[in-house]
Amino acid sequence: KFNKELSVAGREIVTLPNLNDPQKKAFIFSLWDDPSQSANLLAEAKKLNDAQAPK
């Protein structure tokens, strides 16, 4: 279960257009550290992506 959630969340995070590479890497490392938090980490990444969207 975690492997699928981890890969789905990881793929989504790397495609978020408004995150820079260090931010993406930080989220990916957090996913590896605790795969059970993949849904929460993906939600946080999406929030940050939205907040950094060009206005």
Rank of each mutant, 00 (worst) to 15 (best):
I28Q: 03
L6C: 15
Q23Y: 02
V8H: 11
K4E: 14
N20M: 07
I13A: 01
E12V: 13
K55N: 11
D34K: 03
N49L: 02
A51K: 10
F2Y: 11
E12P: 01
A53C: 07
F29Y: 10
D33K: 11
A45S: 03
P35E: 04
S7V: 15
F27P: 11
K55V: 12
A39Q: 09
R11V: 08
L41Q: 02
P22L: 14
K1R: 14
V8K: 13
E5D: 10
K25A: 14
L19C: 04
V14C: 15
L31S: 03
Q23T: 05
L41W: 02
E5W: 09
N3R: 05
N49G: 01
E12H: 08
E5K: 06
V14N: 11
P35A: 04
P54H: 08
A9T: 11
N40I: 11
A45I: 02
D34R: 00
I28N: 03
D34T: 05
V8A: 13
D21R: 05
V8F: 09
S7G: 08
L16W: 02
V14S: 12
N20G: 05
T15S: 13
W32G: 04
V8Q: 12
E5Q: 08
S38K: 06
A51R: 10
L48S: 01
S38I: 15
P17A: 07
N40H: 12
L42S: 01
K25C: 15
K55T: 10
L41E: 03
L19A: 00
P17F: 00
D34L: 00
I28M: 07
F2K: 09
A39V: 09
Q37I: 05
V14P: 03
I13M: 03
D34F: 03
S38L: 14
E44G: 03
E5S: 10
L31C: 09
L16D: 01
A26G: 11
K24R: 06
N40D: 09
L31G: 02
K4F: 08
N20H: 07
A51C: 12
G10Q: 14
L31E: 07
A51E: 11
N40K: 11
L6Y: 03
D50N: 07
P35H: 02
I13K: 00
L41C: 05
A53P: 04
Q23A: 02
S38A: 14
A26E: 14
P22I: 15
F27C: 05
S7K: 09
Q52P: 01
L6Q: 06
K24L: 02
V14G: 06
A53V: 07
A53W: 05
D33S: 10
L41I: 14
F2Q: 11
A45E: 01
F2I: 11
P22N: 15
S38E: 12
I13S: 02
S30F: 11
I28E: 08
D34N: 08
N3E: 14
Q23P: 01
K1H: 12
P17S: 05
A39K: 10
S30T: 08
N49K: 01
A9C: 09
S38C: 14
N20P: 03
F29P: 12
K25L: 15
K46Q: 08
I13E: 02
E12L: 13
D50V: 06
T15W: 10
K47V: 07
S36P: 04
A43G: 04
L31A: 03
S36G: 08
K55M: 10
P54F: 05
A53N: 07
L16A: 01
L31Q: 03
D34I: 00
P35G: 03
V8E: 12
Q37L: 07
I28F: 03
K25F: 12
P22M: 15
A43Y: 08
K24F: 02
S36T: 10
A53K: 09
V14F: 09
K46R: 13
K55C: 12
R11C: 15
A43L: 09
P35C: 05
D21W: 15
P22E: 15
A9K: 05
L16N: 00
F29W: 11
